[in-house]
Simulated scan of single mutants.
Amino acid sequence: MKDGRTSDKVLENIQEKIFTGEWKPGQKIMSEIKLSEELNVSRVSVREAIEKLATLNIITKKQGGGTFVNDLGPSVYLNSLLPMLILDRDNYMDILEFRLITEPETARLCAERASEDLIKELQFSYEKMKSYSNDMKKFTEEDLKFHTKISEGTQNTLIIKVNELLRNVLEYHQRTLYESLGPEGGIHEHKFILDAIKNKDSELAAIYARRHAERTISDLRKLK
């Protein structure tokens, strides 16, 4: 078996030990040599698996001190989505349909839970969006920042993490869409969402977030 495929099997084996609780947070895992002996694979394959898990923040390597299991919050389990999302950058419609399902409830929770400080940050982000109406790169950055703030307002770690994962994938597509159709629709819709959140009107926030997602999908279909 090739080293790449072997390292994936090693990674799955280590993940299973961690996710089932056999290896607990803070615990030092066995050395690369012992792992290679236990799994009957090369040290190269073990090292590759360890590096991947460290990148996903599931374990931490300490120079000269060994490798330790991290304390895994819910958001860590979503890190494995990142390679898939990067590879599937062209599935913009799939992402928009996912947002159509999630963003209304995200806006609803934000309206219920957002602090006054976060609402001020949303307002600031919206004002910057308006000021960048002739610069689609900066406008898109503020658009995505606005949605990031809404996710933070939910105080839900999974929602925040999913938004973070989607943000980089969305940036190119969102900018292309705005360059083709202009920012006016986005500016108006973000204002409605913002006002609903400021007024703590969770139902209205969800309705406007849904309309915003639906309009974006409709615009993309027209372009295609």
Rank of each mutant, 00 (worst) to 15 (best):
S131F: 03
Y126T: 13
M129T: 13
E97H: 12
L100V: 09
K138V: 10
A114P: 08
R108N: 08
C110D: 05
E116P: 04
D135V: 14
K137A: 08
Q123H: 08
C110A: 15
L109P: 00
T106F: 02
A107E: 00
R113C: 08
K128W: 01
T106S: 12
F124C: 04
T140D: 05
E105M: 09
D135T: 14
S131W: 01
T140H: 06
A114K: 03
L122F: 05
K120E: 08
D135P: 15
R108G: 06
S131L: 06
N134C: 08
F124T: 03
L122G: 01
A107T: 04
M136A: 12
E97A: 08
L122A: 04
L100A: 13
L100T: 13
K120A: 07
Y126R: 11
D135W: 05
I101R: 09
Y126G: 14
T102C: 03
Y132P: 13
K128D: 08
A114H: 06
L100F: 05
E121T: 02
K138S: 15
K138W: 03
T106A: 12
T140Q: 04
E116F: 02
D135L: 08
E105N: 13
A107P: 09
D117H: 03
E112T: 09
E112Y: 03
S133I: 06
S125F: 03
L122C: 10
L109Y: 01
E97I: 08
A107Y: 02
F98T: 15
L100G: 14
E121N: 10
Y132G: 05
R113T: 11
K120T: 07
M136S: 14
L100Q: 12
S115I: 03
M129P: 10
I101Q: 09
R108W: 02
K130Q: 09
K128T: 13
E103W: 02
L122S: 02
A111D: 01
E97F: 07
